[in-house]
Amino acid sequence: MTEHIDRVRTYALVFAVLIALTVLTTAVAFVDLGPFSVVVALAIAVGKMLLVALFFMHIRHSTRLTRLVVLGGLLWLIILILLSLTDFATRTWVGVPGR
């Protein structure tokens, strides 16, 4: 594996974007976007996560195996949440109390 050493400039730029996104997400929270405020907040959070993971955690230089591990972890988190929601989201469909 060849070592990639990023420039300080790159890190500083990523850092600046992260701060800007933090300010943005805080400001947007005070605007009434209806159901989209969650979407926007989470989209910004995901964007920040990607920046930290790709640049600060060097995923953009990492091996395929490392990427597979990360994607696997995220996929399992989605499994946990989605399959649990098959229960919580459909509880009221039957219309029988307790069912």
Partner: peptide
Amino acid sequence: FLFPLLYLIDRH
């Protein structure tokens, strides 16, 4: 993720 989920729910 904790910051928007805990602090920024429907501030308006």
